[in-house]
Amino acid sequence: MTGNSRDDIALETLFEAGRSERPLPSGEFLERMAARADEAAARPAPAARPVLRLAWLGRVFAASGLSGAAALGVWIGFVMPEAIDALTLEGDDTVALATFLPGTDLEAILDE
């Protein structure tokens, strides 16, 4: 038998002793742990704080509002294109541009 395998056997003997001499907690410690469990069970689960809940609701509404508005716009444009026409300005684009660029000679620009 090699020295190494004798060492392995010796080590296994020590492990075996370790398993049989398992460190055990004291009864007093376990009772203290059980008392802590009693206390924890009696305590109601913490509810979410109202401020946090409102903040969360605000985020949900903001996100759903934006996406909802976008979806509504697409839907209106698809099913009622004439309604979109009614909302657009009469006349040509020059009139509309002039409102955003006051004092600009649009005709001169367009002629260039």
Binding site: D7, A10, L11, T13, L14, E16, A17, G18, E21
Partner: peptide
């Protein structure tokens, strides 16, 4: 010293 022969002489408590 040979570990195995030393361990053989120990009590269970000593081994642990």
């Amino acid at each position: 010293a040979d570990l195995a022969s030393v361990v053989e002489l120990m009590t269970a408590r000593q081994r642990s």
